Amino acid sequence: MDHSITQQGSNELCDVQDQDQELFLSKLPKTKGWLGSSDLSLYQNFWCPSTLVPNIISFQKHFQAHDQDIILASKPKSGTTWLKALLFTIVNRTNSNLSDTPLLNSNPHELVPFFEFTLYANNNELPNLSDIPSPRLFSTHIPYASLPESMKDSKSRIVYICRNPLDIIVSHWHFATQADGVHSCSKWTLEEFVDVYCKGEEIFGPFWNHMLGYWKQSLENPQKVLFLKYEDLKKDTKTQVKRLAEFVGFPFSLEEENKDIVEDILKLCSLRNLKDLEVNKHGKFMPYFDNKSYFRKGQVGDWANHLTKAMVKRLEKLIREKLSAYGLTFELVI
């Protein structure tokens, strides 16, 4: 499989006319995804559900970033939902009291919408983003290299959350299992999930390219990209949340800290509290994912309860080769 040809074709996307898009998409390399009715396509050197490629193309072609925009980027199952709740609450804390925040009645994914899953999901109509108050909050699972140029060139800020790949795999496997009763899925074993992750053929993967893209940008341009580790956020949530607030331009004042506003936000956005909200117990964010499926354990190191020694050894070797060489490391207790 010549991925270099695919990459070249993808980079020439802007020259592809709408009537040629179907042909273009049909020629992309494919691999099996865990959703039984959906395969993955290799687009611009990352794998994503084939049904999402047109949405991503539309996003890349048409989105115009504002300097005040804040984008939350992540690999799936890295703590996205939690960080959305925190980010939304931090930015909007002066617009409403925590006692009547929209977070109490809306799933975090509704408040910080995905470009590829939600905003650009209607191929026949572009979203009207002009009425969204500033700062606009968006999210994406797309790798940095494939973000629209307007986003890279603007002063918009990107918050990236990264998680130990071993925990991502376990969380993703549980997520797939929960969705199994809702949608016709392939019943993948945990071993199969480990295998596709090691091959880099997982959704929005390879994971090492995804992580490194944002990691390198955070080092080269720390005013543009904030790189957060899920493990650090769990270990010292208050410090990391204050760091997040500072980065997005909404730092906590001394008066707010004296009034324990930070602690109130942490309590509001805790996994336990979010999980207990009625809005997150019922309904669906997307047709085949119950809201409750986004709130499981959120633990660090849960992989140790699921992965075999052979799986861990294989993954540890891959992480060391692909990530550690660039200074991106994770604690692995074997």
Rank of each mutant, 00 (worst) to 15 (best):
I161S: 03
A145G: 11
D236P: 07
D131L: 15
T308F: 06
A176Y: 00
W82D: 02
F88V: 01
E331Y: 11
D167V: 12
H183S: 14
S58E: 10
N92Y: 06
Y294V: 00
F330A: 08
H183N: 14
P287T: 09
S253R: 02
D100P: 10
W34A: 01
H66E: 07
N258R: 15
D15T: 14
L190V: 13
L147K: 05
E278M: 14
V312L: 04
N95C: 09
Y197V: 09
H172A: 13
E255Q: 15
G36V: 09
Y197S: 09
D232L: 10
T94V: 11
D18H: 14
L83K: 04
D260Q: 14
D290S: 14
L13G: 05
L129M: 12
R136A: 06
L103V: 07
F138E: 07
L277C: 13
D153S: 15
E149V: 13
F63T: 06
D100W: 09
I142V: 15
S154L: 07
H306C: 08
N291M: 07
Q217A: 06
M151C: 14
S218T: 03
Y214R: 00
T177M: 13
G36Q: 09
M1A: 13
L190D: 06
P251I: 02
T31N: 03
S139T: 14
P113R: 02
Q17M: 12
K77E: 01
S150W: 12
N107E: 05
K242C: 10
K61C: 08
K84D: 05
S154T: 09
L137D: 03
T80F: 01
P108F: 00
K84A: 01
Q64S: 10
F63L: 08
S218R: 04
F63K: 05
M311A: 08
S26W: 07
S74D: 01
D302W: 12
D69W: 04
Q19F: 12
W82M: 00
N92I: 06
P206V: 00
T94H: 12
C185W: 12
H174Q: 05
P287W: 06
R314Y: 05
I142S: 03
L332I: 13
V248D: 00
L166K: 05
K242Y: 04
T189G: 10
T308L: 04
P222H: 02
Q178G: 11
F285S: 13
E278I: 12
S74F: 01
L72D: 01
K322N: 08
I70V: 06
Q44T: 02
E125A: 14
E331T: 15
E12G: 15
G249R: 04
L328H: 05
L219P: 03
I168T: 10
G205R: 00
I57N: 02
C14G: 12
S38T: 13
M286R: 14
K267L: 06
F175W: 02
K281I: 05
K313N: 11
K309M: 07
I334H: 13
C198T: 10
T189N: 12
L72G: 00
